[in-house]
């Protein structure tokens, strides 16, 4: 790791001030993605801004027909939260399978969503549930937020504060892990909400994306059989030493079936 200055502000405003003043400063919450990258000297921040002391970023609460999860909520907290389990069990279940116990004890939803790793779990739920990303400046719809591999609508210095999840009628998630890294190799999140039916694929492509054919099929007939017949095209999917794009495309259909089954 290159050396850097360390800041620990206690308000969002202070954090944003530091981050805006220094474009080479990086925010850190759980650090489960950032620190491994820094250890490999893949980037060289001048400063890291530790968000963990900011009370405004914390908390999980039900607000009417929405579930609001603060950016600093750890995966383990989401997995075990009675509010999340009651409102969106699929989200709690997803959180319980991110990384390993130690990662879940540190990693946060805000960090994961801001980073938008194509092989991460949470972006699939955010997009699948048509959630709203709340930053220090504005509210961003999930459809606008994720912009491809490691890219989001966040501007430099802009901080993710919370995510508002509409509570769905049904939701389910299934994934196949990359056998080595245990990140997502192919995952599918399905949800039926007031605004419609969504099917989101993660892990298999260069970023999370909605699977339109499956959404149509599932909107007409909410059953595993409905998606079983929909083939995902391998075009544009990832291929690597762990599996070809064709294999990942196959897994998308398998995971879609399982996600619907998990949703009940």
């Amino acid at each position: 790791m290159y050396d850097f200055a360390y800041h620990k502000p206690t308000t969002v405003a202070d954090a944003v001030k530091i981050l805006s003043a220094d474009p080479e400063a990086r925010p850190i919450s759980g650090g489960q993605t950032l620190l491994p990258a820094l250890k490999h000297r893949l980037n060289k921040p001048t400063a890291v801004v530790d968000l963990s002391g900011i009370a405004e970023l914390k908390g999980i609460r039900r607000e009417g027909d929405r579930l609001v999860i603060g950016a600093l909520a750890k995966h383990g907290e989401v997995a075990n939260s009675p509010e999340v389990k009651a409102a969106i069990p699929a989200l709690a279940q997803m959180a319980s399978t991110i990384g390993d116990t130690q990662v879940r004890n540190r990693g946060t939803i805000g960090g994961s969503v801001s980073n938008n790793d194509p092989a991460a779990d949470y972006p699939a739920a955010v997009l699948g549930l048509d959630a709203t990303v709340v930053t220090d400046k504005r509210r961003i719809a999930a459809d606008d937020f994720f912009q491809g591999m490691f890219t989001t609508a966040l501007e430099p210095g802009e901080l993710l504060v919370a995510i508002e999840f509409p509570i769905p009628e049904k939701a389910g998630y299934a994934k196949m892990r990359n056998p080595a890294s245990r990140y997502v190799m192919a995952g599918v999140f399905v949800a039926r909400t007031k605004s419609g039916t969504r099917v989101v694929v993660n892990g298999a492509g260069p970023g999370v994306f909605r699977q339109a054919e499956m959404e149509t099929a599932l909107a007409a007939n909410w059953s595993a059989d409905a998606v079983a017949g929909v083939k995902q095209s391998p075009d544009g999917l990832n291929g690597d030493i762990h599996g070809s794009a064709e294999y990942r495309a196959h897994l998308v259909t398998v995971m879609a079936k399982r996600a619907v089954a998990n949703a009940g």
Partner: peptide, 13 residues
Amino acid sequence: GDSVKSCTLLALQ
């Protein structure tokens, strides 16, 4: 009280 990977936590954190 939580298990954590001490290689993935800054001392200052």
